[in-house]
Design a protein around this nucleic acid. Structure first.
Length: 353
DNA sequence: CATTCGTGGAG
DNA sequence: TCTCCAAGAAT
């Protein structure tokens, strides 16, 4: 890192000063020292805005005040609490890690970096956050905020989504880290990125780092950080057969390896121009009492996908014998199962359920 | 190493 | 309506 020492010193000093003066953001996990609660908040906050994650964090703490409560909970119940947060693999890993801590570590949260990193769902960022916040160990966090702040202040145009960029910025963050107060430094740089050095329209006017910020001086703020990869949006068409009998509905749990893993849904036919030409429809035909075609349709824009879902409400005379992968549940008990937003928006109309 | 995983806020 | 992207990790 060929930067004048004075520039680095200025960065750390001003950042910590800013943190003391402007640290008035009231978030429940702020200044928390319990590693369990820090871990929980960090998993919830991965790729998630603080205000979106906050109510989930509060519910989890309420239901599972200690790690063994989480480890012993029913999986569907935990997924119900996670419902709506997205990235459901985090939830599965959360449960797995809770079991590891409870069983392998006898309920005591491990205190060193490598053991914490080995927990399911914990990567370099989360391990650094937990060790620094809970135990004040000198590990520098590297998240979206840190990439942005460092790339702008030091004027680095190495793509942050490249292998080279990851190593470069991690080394830089580690070097800048105030080893005497890693918790405060990590907290400061992330808060600063979230509230001053924001992705769009950063508040350069009131920025304490402005005078030495390369991006500001060279009018490069909007160009940094650099990313190379472009998002490719995949389009998918879902036809949901909402199979019902008089009192029951057929639902099935989504398998791994795809979106919404672990959540439930109705019988799904994907990417067929006409669902009534499928073999499953031919099998269903003799059971059908009433078919309300395309009762409800919606589009869900995901980060990497555009999903168009059509819901076909179908009343059957009886349970077909060939549907074995899912379960039949009382219409009233649907609220006990976790569903993706697309399904919930259908259910929320409460016209039939 | 490139791809994939949700949802919602903001401009 | 469209785009970006958020306290990243697993595969």
């Amino acid at each position: 890192m060929s930067v004048a020492p004075g520039i680095k010193k200025f960065f750390t000093t001003e950042l910590l000063k800013w943190n003391i003066e402007e640290n008035n953001r009231q978030l429940p996990w702020k200044n928390e020292k319990d590693p369990y609660k820090i871990w929980l908040s960090e998993i919830i906050l991965q790729q998630t805005r603080a205000e979106q994650g906050r109510p989930y964090y509060e519910q989890f703490i309420l239901h599972y005040p200690e790690v063994q409560h989480l480890a012993n909970a029913l999986e569907d119940e935990v997924f119900r609490l996670w419902q709506g947060l997205g990235y459901y693999n985090r939830c599965r890993n959360l449960i797995a890690a809770a079991k590891t801590i409870t069983q392998q570590y006898n309920g005591v949260f491990p205190e060193n970096y490598d053991e914490i990193l080995a927990l399911k769902g914990v990567g370099p960022y989360t391990a650094a956050a937990i060790t620094s916040f809970a135990f004040n160990l000198p590990y520098a966090v590297l998240d979206g905020n840190v990439y942005r702040v460092l790339s702008r202040y030091f004027g680095i145009d190495i793509p942050i989504d490249s292998t080279e960029g990851k190593k470069y910025f991690q080394d830089m963050a580690s070097e800048l880290l105030d080893k005497k107060q890693p918790a405060a430094f990590n907290q400061a740089i992330m808060d600063f990125g979230a509230s001053v050095c924001t992705p769009q329209l950063p508040d350069c006017e009131h920025c304490p780092l402005q005078s030495k910020c390369i991006a500001f001086r060279q009018n490069m703020i909007s160009l940094l950080p650099v990313k190379t990869k472009k998002l490719i949006i995949k389009e998918r068409n879902f036809d949901y057969l909402v199979l019902t009998t008089e009192h029951e509905v057929y639902i099935q749990q989504r398998s791994q390896k795809d979106i919404w893993q672990g959540l439930y849904e109705f019988y799904l036919i994907e990417n067929e121009k006409n669902y009534q030409e499928t073999s499953i429809w031919q099998q269903l035909k003799p059971y059908i009492q009433q078919n309300i075609d395309i009762e409800f349709e919606n589009r869900q824009k995901l980060t990497h996908q555009l999903i168009r879902s059509k819901f076909h409400l179908i009343l059957l005379k009886a349970r077909p014998s060939f549907l074995t992968q899912g379960i039949w549940v009382e219409k009233d008990s649907l609220k006990n199962y976790p569903f993706p937003k697309t399904i919930l928006s259908f259910l929320s109309r409460k016209k039939y359920f």
